[in-house]
Amino acid sequence: MSVINCSCCNGPAEPHKIVNCCVCNKPYKIDCVNISSGEARKIHSKSGLTWTCKNCAQLGNDINSLKKIIIALQNDINELKSKMLAPDATNSQAHLLDVEKIVQEVADREKRKFNIVVFGLKEDKDLKTNNDQLNADK
């Protein structure tokens, strides 16, 4: 009779006292994984009953959790895409305001690109408006 070493304790056991994980196919002594002799007989009888080791079961749970996260992310991406492509009035107005701000900023920078800043120069207090100050500076 052949002897198989357990993947848990590395101890030898006879084949009828061993169950194989249905995922990784590693052998485990039924005593190490708390399986009764009756349950082991059902697993060996090809009745469709299988057993999964703790590592593979945890890996399966992790994979299922990741699948749920991926599905949720795909739904979020699709929702964002539909919002971006939808002709929403508020969205397009906000986009136009952003474009207007950018154009205004570029125009302001173009006007100021040759400005010189002089520190310590006193301002004329008689000038009342911003336009008066601009004209005096020119």
Rank of each mutant, 00 (worst) to 15 (best):
H44G: 03
K68F: 05
Q74S: 09
D126I: 10
K17C: 02
G48R: 03
E100T: 09
R109P: 02
R109S: 10
E39S: 05
E39A: 05
W51H: 02
A72C: 05
L66W: 04
V23E: 07
I63G: 07
P15K: 02
L134A: 09
V99A: 08
K122S: 13
K46N: 13
L73A: 07
N64Y: 14
N91Q: 14
L121F: 11
G60H: 11
I71K: 13
S47W: 04
C56K: 02
C56P: 04
I63M: 10
K113Q: 12
R41W: 04
G48D: 04
Q74K: 12
L85K: 11
H44K: 08
D126N: 14
E123C: 07
A86V: 03
A13G: 01
Q104V: 10
D126L: 11
V117G: 06
R112N: 15
S65N: 13
A94P: 05
P15R: 01
D126C: 08
G120K: 01
C56Y: 04
A57I: 09
R112I: 09
S92P: 02
K17H: 05
H44I: 01
K29H: 07
E39D: 06
D108P: 04
Q133T: 08
K113D: 11
M84D: 06
E79P: 02
T90Q: 15
S47L: 10
Q93V: 06
Q74L: 07
A94Y: 13
D137S: 12
W51D: 03
Q93R: 12
V103K: 14
K68S: 13
K54M: 10
K46D: 13
F119Q: 09
L85W: 04
D126W: 08
P27I: 00
C24I: 04
K113T: 07
N25V: 02
Y28C: 01
K113I: 08
A40M: 03
N91Y: 14
D88M: 03
T90Y: 11
